[in-house]
Design a protein around this nucleic acid. Sequence first.
DNA 1: CGATTCATTGACCGGGATCAAGAACCGTGG
DNA 2: CCACGGTTCTTGATCCCGGTCAATGAATCG
Lengths: 254, 254
Amino acid sequence: MDSPLLKKLMQFSDFSSDDKSLINALTSDRQRLYGAREDIVREGEHSADIHVVLTGLACRYKHLEDGSRQIMAFLVPGDPCDSEIFILDKMDHSIGTLSPSIVAAVSGARMKQLLLNRGSIALAFWWNTLQDEGVLRERIIDEGRRDAYGRIGFLIYEIFLRSRAFGVIDGQTFDFPVTQVDLADATGLTPVHVNRMLRQFREENLIAIDGKTWTVLDPQGLRKAVGYEASYLHLDRARREPYSEAGRRVSGLI
Amino acid sequence: MDSPLLKKLMQFSDFSSDDKSLINALTSDRQRLYGAREDIVREGEHSADIHVVLTGLACRYKHLEDGSRQIMAFLVPGDPCDSEIFILDKMDHSIGTLSPSIVAAVSGARMKQLLLNRGSIALAFWWNTLQDEGVLRERIIDEGRRDAYGRIGFLIYEIFLRSRAFGVIDGQTFDFPVTQVDLADATGLTPVHVNRMLRQFREENLIAIDGKTWTVLDPQGLRKAVGYEASYLHLDRARREPYSEAGRRVSGLI
DNA sequence: CGATTCATTGACCGGGATCAAGAACCGTGG
DNA sequence: CCACGGTTCTTGATCCCGGTCAATGAATCG
């Protein structure tokens, strides 16, 4: 049975069965169940381990001096959390769960040894990070250039696609265990305004929310409404494409 | 003579002299001089090469459907531009110069072959990307939680630090060949408001601008004014100190 | 020198923040 | 089962930061 980590990395490379076993072995022991809203790694800490989310939903976040919080990324099964330990003495942000999650710890030393000897796997980890970078860049565009309606809708649509990619639930319904405060922290808006935008999406019959269960009633409509550009996810580009979402592009000059 | 790329990667690893030669060789031929405001890679293109900035200043940017532009990152000497070619059919954003720059092209196939055989080098490239990610995360915080004054000041201070790290000019004066429109595109503000903020910084005697030459008159004051938190740069953390003339440290971030 | 880009400043407007107050929804213990 | 205290959600009223529109210099360039 392929681990979520292997599934993720297989987006990028064909692995030998040797490689596959090695990757699977990484997260096979030292698994731990975290509750909802528990920290996996905290800012300022240094851990000798890298953590990998196997089930559930987690996020990267940071508390600022003024008490506000910024969520910088959501982490889904297969995502390594804190590869930064290789280059940093201390984490410059925290990782916390949003829902109960199983997380594996991998010794940094072991990982490093593996990557030094297996260029193929090192390459896959690099490429995975490159993909993450794409998501971060899209978030920058999101915050820099979209209005509140677009930002919220964009976020919903992205989570919808990623959830579907993991087959979390079928069809248009998926689990998204966040509060409106979390959404505000992720989009740079206030909770009050998040609420207003959600109401609008509901009134437009684009989405429905029941507790932590969300439904995208009209995927195409939502996509249009927020001008979603899926190409950056490259779900249709990865060698083995788990799910496809046709991308459009625009090009231009400076 | 170490290439900018090698200098950058040496932040992360000790290399054998073999490795060093291999890295230096990557960017030693196929160098090309670009003028100011020229595209190195354009969104939608697929190139078989990876480009590495050797001198000058470049940026990642993207045009949106509505015609606006977002600058997502600045690229300084030693930065690989488009490693994404390994995982994407087409670039999802463009890379363009801001000042005249020398850029080297590296065959993707050659690079891949090298990384497969040299885990140590593959690891360094991965870590370099991890560092870039940290910078992107900081930008997300910037856009999500800071006001216009803080954003502009933050950007100036960051460029100031990085320029000093590269020893571009001495003391508090450095070259920053951007227009106010560029700054607006990088911060998600309008050019008009950028201008107002710059005026404010000038009136507070924190900075002076003469053409493309900027001076931070009061580094501590600027830092205080914008609540700069340098820790994410980890200038004091990087394993080694490649630019180790006293007091100077590292490298290309943003 | 026109012509084009870039910087600057003023007047006005609007999206989203802020403040405030209920309402609905918990998990907990009696 | 209900009573409760604490989150979370919801909605209205008001304010202000930064966007928009517009006009004028200033600098750069064929």
